[in-house]
Design a protein around this nucleic acid. Sequence first.
DNA 1: TATTGTTATACTCTATAACTATA
DNA 2: TATAGTTATAGAGTATAACAATA
Lengths: 166, 166
Amino acid sequence: MPQLRQPRPLNAAAGSAGETPSVDVIDSSYLESLLGYNARRATLTVIEVFLETMAPYQLRPVDFSVLSLIAHNPGITSRQLCTTLGILPPNLVGMVNTLEKRELISRQPHPRDGRATGLHLTQSGEKLMRDAEATAAELEAGVAARLSPSELRTLIRLLKKIYQPA
Amino acid sequence: MPQLRQPRPLNAAAGSAGETPSVDVIDSSYLESLLGYNARRATLTVIEVFLETMAPYQLRPVDFSVLSLIAHNPGITSRQLCTTLGILPPNLVGMVNTLEKRELISRQPHPRDGRATGLHLTQSGEKLMRDAEATAAELEAGVAARLSPSELRTLIRLLKKIYQPA
DNA sequence: TATTGTTATACTCTATAACTATA
DNA sequence: TATAGTTATAGAGTATAACAATA
């Protein structure tokens, strides 16, 4: 583990001819100046907290996203879920099957397209998502504890500008 | 693909008893209110642009991070790279081997620890990283084109607060 | 002919256990 | 006894091709 507070020895990062330099304190200031690096590190932190906090519900971020979209869009199809979340259809099949086996969602025939299936929350699915969305709100507040409400709004607004450049 | 601008048919999201609802326009406003969802979507966008833009250098984000840390910390060890970037040691071995075979880095004995190996850029590695870091700067400017320089600084500052909560 | 949902499958990424050489 | 680097391997995540049923 890189030491953070000890003085650098004389031979560290010497760089003079013939010497083999070594470093005790890592300089990551360049990487930390890059948007991509910071976005990725922040995302990994939020996901880590999400996995811990949502463990009682046995929901990964993607399961939560799928269930939440079904909750707010009853009758949504698999194809629509894939397009909205950027998931490839073959990779959604297993998730939907698992959620159906857990009796959190049900499949119903689509009213106007015989190829498609409408997805709906069951009663226990609705109960779970009410609790899970409440927990998610607390989770967000905890992760962003050092941000003011105004800063959190700003952060989300600027992130949207990155992935919704239209 | 969800349609975005067409009026919702009468039977869409009806929800009355006996009907099977369907949706034409997906409401993702709840997910978009969550920090984690926005952070992940923004990160995926930046990574996608990174992969396209950096294709000429054949560098994934993780390769760029490793080479950049070696460039700014000559003699850094594998263990230090792992700790700084959150990579597990077994998963770094292959990356370092590949970069060495491409003659972008070289391994030299650590001056004070016989177990460790110091990593250094070769001359061609230095050349590549000069070009790659210049390209990365253009990439960042492109991704954040709709943000003012001040907004970009704010975004990075707030992201740091998420993953550096100390 | 195109699209929805699906199976099979391959590739990448991430994680754990265990070994060696050295501290 | 602990640590740096490595090997082997397992699991999760992501990708493409191809198929049956329906539009």
